[in-house]
């Protein structure tokens, strides 16, 4: 049952990442991967909020493990960082790593704060 909730959440989260990535790129033409940056930050904010709210097992499976897990991605983040570095945009590659991690962590704390919970 819980497994089904993960599947349903991910079945929405993965296409949502793809469509959000497209929408961001369509509005902001850049070699910097803003689309992936935005979905990773947004997913971290939502997962921080769910963690802070001490969501039930089912809610966490659907929206956390499923939706946020598939909305965010480490594989896309790492390959695009490699590509930036290989194309000579070493500063953008380093900035992508630093900004994604720092904003991701900030988003988690913000999300947890918004739901009034604690992460520990």
């Amino acid at each position: 049952m819980t497994w089904l909730l993960v599947i349903v959440g991910a079945a929405v989260g993965a296409p949502l990442r793809y469509l959000t990535d497209r929408a961001v790129q369509a509005r902001h033409d850049s070699v910097f991967p803003w689309g992936t940056f935005v979905v990773n930050a947004a997913g971290s904010l939502l997962l921080g909020a769910l963690t802070g709210a001490a969501a039930t097992t089912d809610t966490y499976a659907l929206l956390g493990t499923g939706l946020c897990g598939a909305l965010t991605t480490y594989s896309t983040f790492s390959y695009e960082t490699l590509r930036l570095a290989e194309r000579g945009w070493r500063f953008l590659a380093a900035a992508n790593v630093a900004a994604s991690v720092l904003v991701g962590l900030g988003a988690v704390f913000l999300g947890a704060g918004l739901t009034g919970g604690t992460l520990a």
Binding site: A10, G13, A14, R17, Y18, N40, G43, S44, L46, L47, G48, T51, G64, T65, C68, G69, A70, L71, T72, T73, Y74, S75, T76, F77, S100, V101, G104, L105, A107, V108, F109, A112, L119, A120
Partner: peptide, 19 residues
């Protein structure tokens, strides 16, 4: 986009570091 994007996760990583 699907399999590898769904398999890997940035949000869980960020929450685990934050915790």
């Amino acid at each position: 986009v699907g399999v590898l994007g769904g398999f890997t996760t940035f949000s869980t990583y960020a929450v685990e570091v934050s915790r």
